[in-house]
Write a protein that binds this DNA or RNA. Structure first.
Lengths: 343, 343
DNA sequence: GTTAGCACTCATATCATTGGAGTGCTAACA
DNA sequence: TGTTAGCACTCCAATGATATGAGTGCTAAC
C-alpha cells in the first residue's frame, strides 16, 4: 500500500515530530536526513501521505503533523523496538534496589521508574490477591476486651485487625477457636471465601454472637483489602514537561481525571486482556483523554493477572522507548514475583 | 500607628485582593464597600499606606496589592477567626467518616480535607511513634525455615515481618523465646529500645546466631518504621486553580520542591515548636517558596508532638479560613487520638 | 479633612504591516 | 516517468503603532 520510500519518509516525519513537537516541513526532512531527495520530491510524497490520511496540516503554511492513523502504522510496523542502553538498564536497576520491601513498594517503584524513563504519567494497577491462600489465623490477646486477629496467607503476608472478644475469654479458648476456623478456611483462596463458607464458620462458633460478628466483619474486610485493586500513579508532574501541556487548562483536565481512582481503574481494566496494547488518540473510549495515547501492558503469573501498567501521554509519544521500558520492567517484575512465590 | 480608618481600608483591600487576585483600586473600594468616603479620600489613604510599606503598586496605573507586611498585620490583628459554617463542618465530618481505618488513613484524610477546604496544597507530617510502647512479641510459624514475627504495641498496633528460624525449631521453643524477649522489652517506648537493650536480648538467646541476627534486624527495622516520619501531601492539583500558578513554570518549580520528601520534612520540622505559625512570603527561609505563605499547626498528645499539618499557597491566601479549618481539624484529631489511646 | 476635576501614566487590546516558513503547481530535466 | 528548480501563494507569528481605560497624583474648592 505504501512504498518503501513513503514509509521511510513517514517514519522520519513521525520521529522528527516526536522529538521536536513542531510540525515538520519538507525542507527539514531533506536537510536533516540524507535521503538523496530534494525538498520538492519530499513535498510531493508528503502531499500523497496527506491524501492517504497519514499526515495533517495545522494550517496551510505550516509543516505537517502525523495523524492518529500514522502513529498506528508506526506502532504496528515501522517501529524498531530497540533494546535499552546499558545506562538506562543500570538506572532502572538502581531505582528498583533503592527499597523493595513490600509488594506495594514494588508497584510504587514501578510507577516511578516508568514515569521517569518515559517522561509521562504512569499508572500501575495491582491485583493484590494474586491467588493468595488462607493459611491460618491466630488471636493475639490485647486486653480484656480486645484481641488482635492475625490472618496468615501462604505467601507469607500477614494481615491484622483488632476484634472485640467476650470479657473473660481465656487465651486457650481463643487459640482453640482460631484453630477450628483455620481448619475450615485453610487452603482457600481469599477470593473464594464466600458468604456460605462464612456461614459455616458461624455455625461453629454459634455460642458467641458478638465475637462472630466482629470476626466475620474482620475476615470480610481483610478479604476485601486483599482483593482490592490498588492504583499507583507516577510522574503526574512530568506532564508539565510536555509542550502539549503548556496550557494549564489541559493539565487540570487530565489531572482531574487521574485523581478519580475509579476512573483510572476502569481505564486500566478495559485493556487488561491483551498483553501489550497501544491506544492512540481517539481510539480511546474514555472522554477527556482522547487527545492522548496510552501504552498498556498486563503481566501475569501462572495465568493470573497480577497487574497492569500503563503510560499515558500526548499522542506524540516515544512509543518505541515506552515499549522497551515496559518490556524490561515486565521481565524484571516477572523474575521478582517468581522469586517471591518460590520462597 | 495606623488609625482605625486606615486599618479598615487596608483590611478591605487585603480581603478584596484575596478574593479577586486583581490589584485593588480606590474606586473599587469606594464602590464595593460602603465607607461613606469618595475614591479620592481612599486614594489619599492608600498613598499613605504605600509609604508605610503596606501596599505595593505593580505599576503606576494599576491598583495596589498588599505587601507581606500587610498580610502580617492582617494575620496578627485584623483577621476575624470566624467559625466554620455548619455546611463546612458537615463536609469535613463526612470526609473523615468515609474511611478511617488506620492511622495512615487518618493522616491522609487530613491532608485531603485540608487541601479541599482551602484550595491549596496541604502537607501533613506524622510522627508515627507517638509514644507507642512495646507490649509483647510472638512468632507465628510459617514453614520450616520461616516464621512471622509480630510485635504488638500498647496502642494496639501490630507490626510484622518474616524472619528466618533455625531448621527444626519447635513452636514451643519459639514461644518460649518470644516470651523471654517480651519480658525484657515490655513497656519500653519503641524509640527507647537502644542498642544496649538489644545486646541484652542477644545474651539471652546466644545459642543461635542466625536467629538473633534476623531478629534484631527486624526489631530495628520496626522501630525505625515506627519512628519514621511520614509525609502526606494533598491537593497538589489545587495549585492549578490559583491564578498565581497560571504559569506552568512556577507550578513545576513548586511541585519539584514538594516532590522531595526530604525537603518537605525539613520545611515542616522547622516550625514544629510553636502551636500555630503563619509564615508569609520572604519570611520563609526555604528558597523556592519565598513567594508563598504557609500556615502550620503542630498537634500534641500528652505533650508529645504527634504531627504537623500545613497549608502552602500563594501569599494571597484565605488566612482566616485556613486557620479555622486547621483549628477544627485539630480538635477533631485530638478527640480521635484520645479515643484511640484510651481503648 | 474631604472631594471634584483633570492631567498623566502605563498595561492591555486592537489592528495593520512585514517576514519567513512552508506549500502547490508548473515546467524543465534526466 | 520520476525528480527537481523556480515561483507564486498562503498564513502564522512577530513587530510596531495606536487607542482604550483603569488608576493615580495633584490642585483647588468646599
Amino acid at each position: 500500500m505504501l512504498n518503501d520510500r513513503k514509509k521511510k519518509i513517514l517514519q522520519l516525519i513521525i520521529e522528527d515530530y516526536i522529538s521536536t513537537a513542531e510540525p515538520v516541513g519538507s525542507r527539514t526532512i531533506a536537510r536533516k536526513y540524507d535521503l538523496g531527495l530534494s525538498p520538492a520530491t519530499i513535498r510531493n510524497e508528503m502531499s500523497d501521505l496527506e491524501l492517504l490520511g497519514y499526515l495533517e496540516q495545522p494550517h496551510t503554511s505550516a509543516g505537517r503533523v502525523p495523524s492518529a492513523q500514522a502513529y498506528r502504522l508506526y506502532v504496528d510496523s515501522l517501529i524498531e523496538p530497540g533494546a535499552l542502553s546499558d545506562n538506562e538498564r543500570a538506572l532502572i536497576n538502581g531505582w528498583f534496589n533503592e527499597r523493595r520491601r513490600s509488594l506495594d513498594e514494588i508497584f510504587q517503584s514501578t510507577a516511578k521508574i516508568l514515569s521517569r524513563m518515559t517522561q509521562n504519567v504512569s499508572m500501575v494497577l495491582a491485583n493484590r490477591d494474586a491467588g493468595a491462600r488462607f493459611r491460618y489465623m491466630k488471636f493475639l490477646p490485647l486486653d480484656e476486651h480486645h484481641a488482635i486477629l492475625c490472618i496468615i496467607t501462604d505467601d507469607g503476608n500477614v494481615d491484622n485487625c483488632v476484634v472485640e472478644v467476650p470479657l473473660g475469654m481465656r487465651p486457650e479458648e481463643l487459640d482453640y477457636l482460631a484453630g477450628k476456623i483455620s481448619r475450615l478456611l485453610e487452603g482457600k483462596e481469599l477470593a473464594d471465601i464466600s458468604e456460605e463458607l462464612l456461614a459455616v464458620v458461624h455455625s461453629n462458633i454459634s455460642d458467641d454472637k458478638l465475637l462472630f460478628t466482629s470476626l466475620v466483619h474482620s475476615i470480610r474486610r481483610m478479604r476485601n483489602k486483599h482483593m482490592e485493586q490498588k492504583v499507583f500513579l507516577g510522574g503526574t508532574k512530568q506532564l508539565l514537561n510536555q509542550p502539549e501541556f503548556r496550557d494549564v487548562e489541559r493539565v487540570r483536565n487530565l489531572l482531574g481525571i487521574l485523581e478519580e481512582e475509579r476512573v483510572v481503574r476502569d481505564l486500566l481494566k478495559s485493556g487488561e486482556d491483551s498483553g501489550l496494547r497501544v491506544t492512540i488518540g481517539s481510539e480511546n473510549k474514555f472522554s477527556g483523554i482522547q487527545d492522548c495515547s496510552m501504552v498498556q501492558a498486563t503481566y501475569r503469573l501462572n495465568g493470573k493477572i497480577v497487574g497492569t501498567m500503563a503510560v499515558l501521554g500526548p499522542t506524540r509519544m516515544e512509543y518505541g522507548k515506552v515499549i522497551s521500558v515496559m518490556d524490561y520492567l515486565h521481565k524484571y517484575l516477572k523474575t521478582m514475583f517468581e522469586h517471591e512465590n518460590s520462597k
